[in-house]
């Protein structure tokens, strides 16, 4: 499933330009950067509460497909700037982690 479809089906607000055609290999949910560095996989979509610029560095390092910021969190200005630079799609939702993960799990399971 491509990122654009997920954004569409989950009603995510896309904050960056481009990159929505990337194929998503799965999802990784964590708010701890070390955990994501250690355990996420290439092409994963990352669901997190963290809005700090360092999330872009982690996503770039791990070649993640994109990041979903939950619970109405807005990215810091610097984070958004870095996301554009590094071509990491950044999306937001008002839903909490549990529900976004739940819906995405269902969506992935259906196809």
């Amino acid at each position: 499933m491509v990122l654009g479809t997920i954004a569409d089906k989950l009603g995510l607000e896309v904050k960056t330009s481009g990159g929505l055609t990337a194929e998503v290999t799965g999802a990784y949910v964590s708010d701890l950067l070390s955990d994501v560095i250690g355990n996420s996989e290439k092409g994963n979509i990352w669901i997190t509460l963290q809005v700090h610029p360092n999330i872009i560095a982690v996503a770039t390092l791990k070649e993640l497909a994109g990041i979903i910021l939950v619970n109405s969190r807005q990215p810091e200005e610097e984070t958004l700037k870095k996301a554009e630079e590094e071509q990491i799609p950044l999306m937001t939702t008002e839903l909490p982690t549990f529900q976004v993960a739940g819906r995405l799990y269902k969506l992935i399971g259906e196809c």
Binding site: A27, V29, N39, F98, A101, G102, L104, Y105, K106
Partner: peptide
């Protein structure tokens, strides 16, 4: 299970 699967399974 990782967080994603744990949330997903309980939610579904």
């Amino acid at each position: 299970l990782p967080m994603f699967d744990a949330c997903g399974k309980l939610y579904t």
